[in-house]
């Protein structure tokens, strides 16, 4: 009897491709219409009371903020619901029996399912990013033209007009903006891997969703809580909560490590080294949760 490899890229790609098709046929991409409405609506926000350039920059910040909020929300909801649904449904429908009765190691099955969800979120984000960049660019160029016209009428030099245009474009479509989108994708991947871990021991989709949401919320606020208790300690007020936040940081992901969108919305540049660190943290978190999922799932009685 020939040996089956511990892990196989071919088998994983078959399961991932199948998961992607399954989710696409569930018509999950309909949410893109809602996203388009949010991005288009954010165009109509007008902050002209703040004064010329400042108002222009503020308008673009609002637009980017709305875009990133929608991308974050949709990618996380998609990653969470899709992952939470897949494993319990396969067990309930007994389709898992027929898959695991083939020469398919359980790790291959888990990675395949996770990658299928990741592929779905990536495609969704690419479409959202493309739509967002297109609308943002149209808005930026319209603002540049409007400001150039205004400044020309005020008799400003070409240099001044050019520097204004550059300042506005800094708030538009940049590589840093794409780095922000990558950070959104990484967060969704981490959420999917947490949902995968929870679904290996949970008995229902609703339980998986609730537990994952709790973990994500802890992950979102733990850095602030730690900073607060550290501040308290520096003022001489020791609290056992500080020790607790340290333990929490070992068990739960720190989503602040992956959050670079706030800087991107404010027009800050994202360096390659920062993007590399964020990517490494995201991939590491996802890998840890996937390995933990496998530990639980490898001996699960079906």
């Amino acid at each position: 009897m020939s040996k089956i490899g511990f892990i196989s890229a071919t088998r994983i790609s078959v399961i991932a491709g199948h998961t992607f098709t399954q989710l696409v046929r569930m018509k999950v991409f309909y949410f893109l219409v809602v996203f388009a409405v949010i991005v288009l609506a954010s165009q109509f926000v007008d902050m002209s009371t703040l004064g010329a350039v400042k108002a222009v920059e503020q308008n673009l910040r609002v637009m980017k903020g709305a875009g990133f909020f929608a991308m974050n929300m949709f990618s996380v909801i998609l990653a969470l619901s899709a992952t939470a649904l897949l494993l319990p449904k396969d067990i309930e429908d007994r389709t898992l029996y027929t898959i695991l009765c083939k020469p398919v190691p359980r790790l291959d099955y888990l990675i395949g399912k996770l990658l299928g969800v990741v592929a779905l979120v990536t495609v969704g984000l690419l479409v959202m990013d493309g739509l967002f960049c297109l609308i943002l660019n149209i808005r930026v160029e319209a603002m540049v033209a409007e400001q150039a016209d205004l400044l020309t009428r005020m008799g400003r030099s070409a240099e001044v007009i050019e520097s204004h245009a550059a300042a506005i474009r800094e708030q538009g479509v940049t590589w840093s903006l794409q780095a922000g989108v990558i950070a959104v994708l990484l967060k969704a991947i981490v959420v999917a891997s947490i949902a995968l871990l929870v679904s290996t021991f949970s008995t229902s989709t609703i339980f998986t969703i609730i537990i994952t949401v709790v973990v994500v919320l802890i992950g979102l606020i733990q850095a602030e809580a730690r900073d607060y208790f550290l501040q308290q300690q520096s003022l001489g007020m020791s609290s056992p909560m500080l020790e607790m936040t340290r333990w929490i940081s070992l068990l739960f992901p720190d989503f602040k490590l992956l959050g670079i969108e706030d800087g991107v919305i404010n027009g800050e540049r994202v360096s390659w080294s920062l993007l590399g660190r964020v990517s490494l943290a995201g991939v590491l978190y996802a890998a840890i949760y996937t390995v933990l999922s496998w530990f639980v799932f490898r001996r699960k009685e079906l």
Binding site: M1, S2, K3, I4, H18, T21, Q22, R25, M26, D93, R94, T95, Y97, T98, C101, K102, P103, V104, P105
Partner: peptide, 27 residues
């Protein structure tokens, strides 16, 4: 075929039809 059933290798030459099988409806 002489291989421990808990090992993946044991399933290479096995076909299984569960009772009332359900498959992916989208396929």
């Amino acid at each position: 075929f002489g291989c421990d059933s808990m090992k993946v290798d044991a399933r290479q030459h096995v076909g299984f039809l569960p009772e009332n099988p359900y498959f992916y409806k989208h396929q």
